[in-house]
Nucleic acid binder design. Structure first.
Lengths: 345, 345
DNA sequence: TTGAAAGCGCTAACAA
DNA sequence: TTGTTAGCGCTTTCAA
C-alpha cells in the first residue's frame, strides 16, 4: 500500500488482514468490534497485520449490514449567525462524545436547499438530524422521507403541533413581550420592530409578543412600527439602521428580532452620531456573546444557544431508543438588561 | 412502508422496486443513474413503483462498489471565529454545487480531536478534506492515513513544504509587516502584539513580520511587546484589553493576530473610557465583516475568507482528477485602513 | 476460541 | 432495451 501522486493503491480489507495474520475474517471482525474474546496470540498477529497493511475500516459496509451511519445532520437557516454557530457547537460536542460526526447544511431559508440536504442525509442513513426548518407552508413530505429512512428528527423553533417530531423552541411570544414591556417601563411608546429574512415563524411570534405588551400597557399595538432587513448579509442588516435613522418620525426605541440585526443597527447609529440609548434604545434577541462586549452593551432577550444545541443532540440520541415518545422542550427566554436601554449605571 | 413511533418498517430496495414494476434490478439501477436508455413504458412503471414504495437510495452500497462518498470534510481550529465560519460557507457553497455535503469538525487546536475526525473521515471514504491543522510538531501520520483512504487533502495555513499536499495560506509575514509599517508610519513606536491559542504558526509569522517592520524602520524589534489571550472564548479575549489597559507603560498601539481579538479588546477599551485611536490604535487581522461595522471601524489586514473557502474546495475537487499535481496558493494580504488607526477622516 | 458462509443494496460487465 | 450475475467489505449466525 502506498501513496503516489494522489492515486491510491487498493486499500486493505479485513480479508487481506486475515490472510496475512493467518486467521479467518470473522476473527478480524471480532477483534475490530470487540465482540468476542480473542486469544492473546491471535490478537497479536492480527494487530500486527492491521498495522502492516495500514488497515482503514470501511464504514459503508457496516452501514450496509443494517447499522446506522454514525453521522448526525444539522440543517441551519443561517450559518454566519453566531446563534446557529453556538447551537452547532453544542450539537457537535454531544455528537463527538457519542462518536458521531456532524454534517452541516445551510439553507438561508430556501426550502429547495433544505430538501437537497434532507435527501442527502436520508440516503446516508444518518442517525438523525437537527433541523431549523425553512418555512414550507406545511409541506413536510421531505421530512417524512428522512424519518422513513430511519433518522431521528429534532425540530428547532417549530411549533409543537406542527409536525410530529421531537422539538425545541423558545417561547417567542413571551420573549417579545419581555422586550417591549421593558421598553415601555422605560417610558418608550414609539417603538419599531425590526425583522429580516429567515425564521419567519419566530419573528412573527416575537412581534406578536411585542403587540401583546403594548396592549397590556394600554397602548395601541397598531402604533408599533415594522421594518425588515433585505437580506442576511451584514451590510444589508446594517442598512436597516440607516433606514431607521431616516424615518420621518424616528422611534425612541427599536426591538430587533435578532442580536445580529441589533448590533448591525447599533454600529450604524454610532457612525451616524445617534446616541444609544439616549437618542434611541435597542433591545435584541438571543444574547450572543458579542452583545455583552459591544461598545454599548446590548440589552437582549437571552436564549441558551449552546445548551439548546446540546439538548437537541441529546433528544436526537434518545429518539433512537426503542420506547421513545416524542417530546417538545420550550426554553423560557430571559430579559438581560444592559446599557443599550438603560445607559451607564 | 410506514412510520410509527420512531421505528421504521424495512426500507424498500431496488429489488422491491424491480419486483413491483415487473422489471429487473438492473433496469431500476439504470434509471436511477441515468446510465442507459429506458423505454418510456418501462420508465413509467418503475417511476411509479419508486414512488409507491417510498424508495430512498442507500449511498452506502454505492460506496461499497468503489465510488467515493459525496462528502467532504472541513476540520477547523475554532468554529466560533467568523473567519472559519466564512471559510466554511465558501467550502459549503462549492461542495453543494458539486452535490456534496460538508462534515464539519472543530478541534480547538487539539491534535487528539483532529485525529479522531480524520479517522472518521477516512473510514467514511470521503472525497477529501480541508484541514486547518493543529500544530503537531511534524507528526502527520494521521493525515497519511486519510490520504491513504483515497481522500484529497487541502491544508489551510500550513507551509508549502511541510506536508506534501495541496494547500492555501496567506503570506503572514507580509501581513504582519504591513500592519506594523502602518502603525510606524503614524508615529507609533510603543507597540504590543496580541496573540492567543490556535493558529500558532500564523501568529508566529505575523509577529515575525511585525519585527521585520520595526527593524526596517530602524527601531528595536525587541521593544515590541507581546501578550496572549488565555483562551478562545469571547470573555478571555476581552480580558486581554483589560490587561493592556493596566500595563505600566501602556502602548500607543496594538497589533492583534485576529480581528476577534482586536474587537474584543476594542470593546473593553471603550467600556474603560480609553479612546481608540487617540489613546490607543488597533490593527486586527482577517477583515471579518464585523470590523467595518464596529463603532470604531477596525483597521485590519484583509484575507478573502469566503474566497479562500471556495478555492480550497475547488482545489480539493481538482485533486480528485487523475493527472493532478499538488499546488499551493498563497493569498496576498492587504492592509485596510479604518478609523481604529487614523480616526475620523 | 476460531472458522465457513450467507447476505446487506447496489453497480457493471456481459448476455440475450 | 432489458436481464443475469458476480461481487464491493463487512457482520453475523451457525458449526466446529
Amino acid at each position: 500500500v502506498e501513496v503516489s501522486g494522489g492515486t491510491v493503491a487498493k486499500l486493505a480489507t479485513i480479508r487481506d488482514v486475515a490472510a496475512l495474520a493467518g486467521v479467518s475474517i470473522a476473527t478480524v471482525s471480532n477483534l475490530l468490534n470487540d465482540t468476542k474474546h480473542i486469544s492473546p496470540v491471535t490478537r497479536a498477529k492480527v494487530e500486527q497485520a492491521l498495522i502492516d497493511l495500514h488497515f482503514i475500516p470501511n464504514s459503508a459496509s457496516r452501514i450496509m449490514r443494517g447499522s446506522r451511519n454514525t453521522v448526525i445532520g444539522f440543517i441551519a437557516l443561517d450559518a454566519p449567525d453566531p446563534f446557529f454557530v453556538n447551537v452547532a457547537r453544542g450539537i457537535e460536542d454531544v455528537a463527538r462524545e457519542a462518536g458521531c460526526v456532524l454534517v452541516l447544511g445551510t439553507t438561508d431559508g430556501q426550502v429547495e436547499r433544505e430538501k437537497q440536504y434532507v435527501e442527502a442525509l436520508a440516503s446516508m442513513r444518518v442517525l438523525g438530524a437537527v433541523i431549523a426548518p425553512a418555512y414550507t407552508g406545511g409541506d413536510e413530505r421531505h421530512l417524512d422521507r428522512l424519518r422513513l429512512s430511519g433518522a431521528a428528527i429534532v425540530l428547532l423553533g417549530a411549533y409543537e403541533s406542527e409536525y410530529v417530531a421531537c422539538g425545541i423552541s423558545g417561547d417567542d411570544v413571551r420573549g417579545g413581550q419581555l422586550a417591549v414591556e421593558h421598553l415601555i417601563s422605560l417610558g418608550h411608546t414609539s417603538i419599531v420592530c425590526v425583522g429580516g429574512p429567515g425564521g419567519e415563524r419566530q419573528i412573527k411570534d416575537r412581534f406578536a409578543g411585542a403587540a401583546l405588551a403594548m396592549e397590556q400597557a394600554g397602548l395601541d399595538p397598531g402604533s408599533l412600527g415594522r421594518l425588515d432587513a433585505a437580506g442576511v448579509s451584514i451590510a444589508e442588516r446594517a442598512d436597516v439602521g440607516a433606514r431607521i435613522a431616516e424615518l420621518p418620525d424616528r422611534p425612541t426605541a427599536i426591538f430587533c428580532a435578532s442580536d445580529t440585526l441589533a448590533l448591525a443597527a447599533a454600529g450604524t447609529f454610532s457612525r451616524l452620531g445617534i446616541k444609544v440609548p439616549d437618542d434611541i434604545a435597542i433591545v435584541g434577541y438571543n444574547n450572543i456573546d458579542q452583545t455583552a462586549l459591544a461598545p454599548v452593551p446590548l440589552s437582549t432577550v437571552a436564549l441558551p444557544q449552546y445548551e439548546i444545541g446540546q439538548a437537541a443532540a441529546r433528544m436526537l440520541f434518545s429518539e433512537a431508543e426503542p420506547d421513545h415518545v416524542h417530546s417538545h422542550t420550550v426554553f423560557e427566554p430571559e430579559l438581560v438588561v444592559r446599557e443599550s436601554t438603560v445607559g451607564r449605571t
